[in-house]
């Protein structure tokens, strides 16, 4: 199990006040902003930007970058690893 991805799911649930969801409800590759996935929207994207800064110390300045990074838990984890490695 990828602990970063598990942490991310917990952080998403916490940050977005989704306490009805559990980590098991979010698949690694589920599209976060798709209506069949988690159904997040632009307001939630603001929360994800806060999440990246709060838990991972990553500041996101270009919203376009966020669009790519926030596709799924998989892409978020990859983005965090890339930023930390740089």
């Amino acid at each position: 199990m990828d602990s970063l991805k598990e942490d991310l799911k917990k952080q998403i649930i916490e940050q977005l006040n989704l306490e009805d969801l559990t980590v098991a409800d979010i698949a690694d590759d589920a599209l976060l902003f798709n209506d069949q996935g988690l159904g997040l929207d632009s307001i939630d994207a603001l929360e994800l930007i806060v999440l990246l800064e709060k838990y991972h110390g990553i500041q996101l300045v270009n919203p376009e970058e966020g669009k790519e990074a926030f596709k799924s838990v998989d892409t978020m984890a990859a983005y965090i690893r890339k930023r930390k490695a740089a």
Partner: peptide
């Protein structure tokens, strides 16, 4: 159940509308 009361209803009736959780 560990689920909230509203989530219990949502699951029991197999509703499929992920926005519900938000």
């Amino acid at each position: 159940s560990e689920d909230s009361w509203f989530k219990q209803i949502y699951k029991k009736h197999a509703l499929a509308y992920p926005k519900f959780y938000k």
